[in-house]
């Protein structure tokens, strides 16, 4: 059952990712991306990472992609998009960037080893199960986030705040 579901989610995730790139209409791209994000959330559930799955849907599919949709529709990109597509040098550049990224990812997977799993995977999973029983599903993530990684977490928040202030400054009418 789990394997079947995993293959299903993986196919939808990859197919969706492919669809984002090849579809011509921005709205179609966006819906493909939502499908990909939802499938990744499904894979998280198969890993019993329920909290991560919920946050994935809530934040990415439910909020960020809705904002994307809002912007696409506000600019009415869906109806006359061909002028916005860039070809020539840009597509060459895109190929180079995608190729480099794929290379880096492939290198990363090579390092993991033949099985594709960490050797101490079972022990880590058992420890996580124990922690989830004691602290609840949210506690397992919240505990390290607000103790070990609190500085990185706060800096992240600060970065977002700076981005928001910058957006407001850029969007303010000049007079």
């Amino acid at each position: 059952m789990t394997e079947v579901l995993f293959v299903l989610f993986a196919v939808v995730a990859l197919g969706g990712a492919f669809g984002v790139v090849i579809s011509r209409s921005p709205v179609a791209s966006l819906l493909f991306m939502v499908a990909t994000l939802a499938s990744v959330a499904g894979i998280y559930v198969l890993f019993e990472a329920h909290f991560l799955a919920a946050i994935q849907v809530l934040v990415y599919a439910g909020a960020i992609m809705v904002l994307f949709l809002f912007v696409i529709m506000l600019l009415n990109l869906g109806h006359d998009y061909r002028a916005d597509l860039k070809f020539g040098l840009w597509s060459l550049l895109a190929f180079v960037v995608v190729g480099l990224t794929a290379g880096v990812l492939a290198q990363g997977f090579m390092d993991v080893g033949d099985t594709g799993f960490r050797e101490d995977g079972a022990a880590v999973a058992a420890a996580l199960d124990e922690a989830a029983r004691e602290q609840g599903v949210a506690g397992v993530i919240a505990e390290p986030l607000f103790t070990d990684y609190v500085v990185a977490f706060e800096l992240m928040g600060l970065l977002l705040l700076v981005a928001i202030v910058a957006a407001v400054v850029l969007a303010k009418p000049r007079n």
Binding site: H50, L58, A61, G136
Partner: peptide, 10 residues
């Protein structure tokens, strides 16, 4: 489900 209310919000 262990995430309860988050499932509804999501």
């Amino acid at each position: 489900v262990p995430i309860g209310i988050l499932y509804i919000l999501a």
